[in-house]
Design a protein around this nucleic acid. Sequence first.
RNA 1: AGGACCGUAGCUCAGUUGGUUAGAGCGCCACGUUGACAUCGUGGAGGUCACCAGUUCGAAUCUGGUCGGUCCUACCA
Length: 950
Amino acid sequence: MMEKTYQPGEIEKRIYADWEQQGYFAPSGEGQPYCIMIPPPNVTGSLHMGHGFNNSIMDTLIRYHRMRGRNTLWQPGMDHAGIATQMVVERQLAQQGKSRHDLGREQFIDKVWQWKEESGGTITRQIRRLGSSVDWQRERFTMDGGLSNAVKEAFVRLHGDGLIYRGKRLVNWDPKFHTAISDLEVENLDEQGKLWYFRYPLAAGATTTDGKGYLVVATTRPETMLGDTAVAVHPEDERYRHLIGKQVLLPLVNRLIPIVADDYVDREFGTGAVKITPAHDFNDYDVGKRHSLPMINIFDIDAKVRATAQVFNSDGTINDSLDKTLPSNLAGLDRFDARKIVVADFESQDLLEKVDPHALKVPRGDRSQAVIEPFLTDQWYVKAAELAKPGIEAVEDGRIQFVPKQYENMYFSWMRDLQDWCISRQLWWGHRIPAWYDAEGNIYVGRDETEVRAKYGLADQPLQQDEDVLDTWFSSALWTFSTLGWPEDTPELRTFHSTDVLVTGFDIIFFWVARMIMMTTHFIKNEDGSPQVPFKHVYVHGLVRDSEGHKMSKSKGNVLDPLDIVDGIDVESLVQKRTSGLMQPQMAATIEKKTRDEFPEGIASYGTDALRFTFCSLASTGRDIKFDMGRVEGFRNFCNKIWNAARFVMHNCEGQDCGQDNEEVQLSLADRWIISRLQQAETEVIRHIEQFRFDLASQAIYDFFWNEYCDWYLELTKPVLYDESANEAGKRGTRRTLVRVLEAALRLAHPMMPFITEEIWQKVKDLAGESGPTIMLQAFPEADPSKIDEQAIGAIHWLQKLVLAVRNIRGEMDIAPGKPLPVILAHASDGDREHLAVTENVLLKLARLASIRFLEEGETAPASATQLAGDMEVLVPMAGLIDKDAEMARLSKEIDKLNKEKQRLGGKLNNANFVAKAPAAVVDKEKRKLAEVESALEKFAEQQTKLEHL
RNA sequence: AGGACCGUAGCUCAGUUGGUUAGAGCGCCACGUUGACAUCGUGGAGGUCACCAGUUCGAAUCUGGUCGGUCCUACCA
């Protein structure tokens, strides 16, 4: 007994549990391997809509290929997400008024592990609820034993190959989290600032060309002047040429610094003279290197001014010759407070020339939002440029293909201009760097301390392991092979690597995709020694945005949990969810209002299949998705439609002879037609999935099921099934077709809508003559061209035109839908007569006709409402039914439309150029169209005259 | 500054190598509970394909430009 409406909740949970328990998600071990690695979600909380989207695409691919007989592995797992996760836990501690230092490293890490269990549990529940057929037996975590081992191995080998080094360089320093971050983790944001013009007095009586005793430099960061070690001018700048090699006396710190010449200087900007602060600006750092300038670090790790500066030579060694004193009134001040004082001091000494407003880019940490300080520290780096080469080649020669292709350009431009990758982080949560130091600071790299001691012959001297951890993306970069057991040479690695597709958003192409390609090509080799790629395709999808097109984010309060669409949520809970744990609690009121406006009733429960189908239907390539609840509702209705079609089929087939026993069957025209259309739909769906066009594939499924199977075929079966006198072979044929086409359509839709298709499949499989424990492991339907019956397609098409013609008259003329109408067909051809002969009985039912007949030779047609079906006229006599004026109006509307078309076609065909140059087939087509339009016009005009005389 | 993508019905989106009467879903209007489904059925209205120029017999589609939007990269202190 099936419910009248589809109720997904209970069904989905039951089915998923069964699948998992039966072990259907594991690779079959047979067939050509097919593998997708899940982009491991961060254990920072729960999955968002982007994950829902991503998972829907991957599961569609996985289920499709599994059904096509591939040895299919979908590898699940999660990412420790170093900085992001540490931040979450630190924020929780902060709510109790504690910092991580109150706990100490070990205890803090325990706390993070606890959080990982909690968040990880939520995430796996979500992944299950989304129906994802991942192989849970193989679930991995980037910090589990195996993967940590892989990380160490990779680090040690890269270090051995000279591709990892440690050095003192300028890094992006996050003063809030007290760690270095990579270039990619810095966001450059437009902000309004100022440009201060400072006077730097010239030393030893030098003067400018206009006779002034000082040089004016412009800066957006006045406080950094404490660390200036030069002023630079352009070598060909006539204004300053004579000053090159001279010195200025740096105010406030009273240090003499040189004036140097460097091409880097833009003569047009500011005054054309630039203060150089090698320890706090990346460009200045380069200038400093070129001119061997000392580097003066004026800040501590909080980006507060130090009491005494740290001074280094340009090669990074400590410089003891320069005065390290910093003005005492600035010591301990935050950057921005120090700035005010510096400016005030310049002003009071009459050294402030002017202040202009200035728009600038401010570097901020993508997690902390703190202003990043370029900072001199010792960090570990990967020589990315060298690793990039095989990765560039792999995409150039097509071993890796991006879908859509335009992302390859983005990839290339990044890969061809790679800076070294700073991989050390001053965090606690992450993979500890496998390097040890002795008392003198010598560095020893190895897999563990024992190995290090053995390798370097260090007996008993104390060794200290590096305190830092690795950038979280370092372990992610190994994901495709570390999850398969590397560095061991495992059967899984041999079987499933290279993987087939990576499904991901464009926002992490650099963070992740590029780095995976680099690491994989370096570490994983084919038998012949050539580099392996991590995946053959990169399917890049867009971002899921809210209904207004805004990016979803916790701080904006517009995030949706995919499960809230699956299971529904009341408005109070939704408001609660969106307003709790905010970084900016003052936003709560605004968020609450917006949420109540958008979802006054909360969100209804739509079920997983509807959500997944929505994601698929929106997945056109390279485009962001504006999430539209209306689409979900539409596809929820589609699920219900499938459900009810199945009810109809069951009602008519259950307990009946559906031809399972191979008794004689007779297929009707309609049967042969729907079977033909099924073949065509199968071809189409396969083609679209192979091309990653999930939107088109979903459309094809929807069209076939609703607009053909339900709207036409089911209706066409009724006259047969309900006809007591119909022969048994014919009924059997119709029942067999009904249930078999349904069964095939379920398999066709299964990758996108796994639950409803399984639930119904279990009910119909026996009737359809199929057996097997689950639809998941059935074959994906493939077209058999010999089943395409052009004659049936033609006849049903004819019938559809006729039915539509009658319905149009009925609708336009306001005739009750149930009123049986007499119909006369005029201008019928032999073909029309043949078609009517085979479709008459169903036609009468579908169009609700009292009678249908051809106009006799020599007979005059009665006054009728007219529609055309091809050349044939469909006449509904007006007597007592139809209002003359209404029909006249309808006719002139039709005639207007046709006249416009006639004009267009006529113009085209009168154009000699068109006739001469266009391909003959195109010209013929236009001619045929014109003839049709003209003949139609003639017929309508005739009717018009006839009616006028009435 | 460089680059990418986008602009099609009220809304969300399709439209394959130029030849369609430019489509779908939702929404809208009218009618309708006929034995799967009102989460439904039937009919209908609704578009100068952002704008301008060009190529072509022919442009939503190709080229150039303008305007609008989104994003990425780099950065002038």
